[in-house]
Design a protein around this nucleic acid. Structure first.
Length: 302
DNA sequence: TAGATACCTTATAG
DNA sequence: ACTATAAGGTATC
């Protein structure tokens, strides 16, 4: 086992680990005290979180928590670099915020969760978890990913415990639609199976979107079953590092109607371009994520 | 091509 | 208690 500490002061803008992990960006982390999503207050203060990642194809375990002034971690490998990537620790928050509009609602959102960062989940788990996100609440989406790990994930021994990695494309494509419906995936079950088959068979690869121009990358991802424009934007933002992506979900649509009505253009692509520009362009997805979390957690009535 | 509708399941509101 | 509604939408017609 390896351990380490990351000095919060070394991160531009600091870090709010709970907000980063419990804001509906990633569904791949678990909170060890079992109180994930229970409260929105700072009750998650020093809770440990864990996830698995693949290093050279092998599943490894990472645990992390935030204590006074540090991000403390323990892992089955040297996880410092991985954590920087996964949790967006190298993003310059003050510089990003400076590109956002100065609206009161935007300012309130950044103030409320200052330190929240955009995650970079692995592409396949991100693809599957956002396919599952359609018409579903945050806590249940997370529950579905736990169930997928439990039923189809490879066991990983670490520090005296047994963890389960997120299932591989092969493992999920091997599941039956009925198996997946047993896990309460509902109509998403065949989408998950078919998209996993596409990856397992080499027919399509979510990682292949890396490096494409933003809108081309979004188009590339919509070839997966169960992936429309909104889910594609989630994968681009929360996995592939396209920080300009603004997923047009129910919350941001309400926000547009309320605060940026001129951005509503009647179709996804054009509305997306408009709100992206309004939210500052290059880092519009960051501001979207702060707005989403702030409004969803009841920061301001809509 | 734009618009309407069905779709699984569960938690919460009324 | 019981029904209606909504949940980080997509596929299909």
């Amino acid at each position: 086992m390896e351990r380490g500490r990351i000095d919060v002061e070394s991160l531009a803008g600091g870090i709010d680990l709970q907000a980063t992990v419990e804001s509906g960006q990633s569904y791949l982390w678990d909170r060890e005290d079992g109180r994930m999503y229970e409260t929105t207050a700072a009750s998650g203060g020093e809770a440990w979180y864990w996830t698995t990642v693949r290093v050279d194809g092998d599943p490894e375990v990472v645990r992390v928590r935030q204590t006074d002034g540090t991000l403390e971690w323990a892992a089955s490998f040297d996880a410092a670099d991985t954590l920087h990537t996964l949790l967006g620790l190298d993003d310059d928050l003050p510089a990003i915020r400076a590109t956002a509009p100065g609206d009161s609602v935007v300012e309130e959102a950044y103030d409320a969760y200052w330190g929240m960062r955009i995650v970079r989940d692995a592409a396949f788990p991100s693809l599957i978890s956002f396919i599952c996100s359609a018409q579903m609440r945050v806590a249940r989406i997370h529950g579905m990913q736990q169930a997928l790990r439990r039923e189809f994930g490879e066991p990983v021994e670490f520090d005296g415990g047994t963890y389960r990695a997120f299932p591989t494309p092969e493992a999920l494509s091997g599941a039956s639609e009925a198996d997946l419906r047993e896990l309460s995936l509902g109509y998403r079950a065949p989408y998950v199976k078919r998209s996993a088959e596409m990856v397992a068979d080499g027919e399509a690869d979510p990682d292949a979107a890396r490096g494409m121009a933003y809108e081309d990358a979004r188009e590339h991802l919509t070839q997966f079953v169960g992936v429309g424009e909104k889910v594609a934007d989630c994968i681009l933002l929360f996995s592939l590092g396209y920080l300009e992506a603004v997923p047009l979900d129910t919350w941001i649509r309400t926000t547009i109607a309320e605060f940026y009505p001129d951005c509503e253009r009647g179709n996804y692509v054009d509305t997306s371009r408009s709100i992206r520009e309004t939210l500052g362009g290059e880092y519009a997805g960051y501001t979207q994520t702060y707005l989403f979390h702030y409004l969803r957690s009841g920061g301001r009535e809509l």
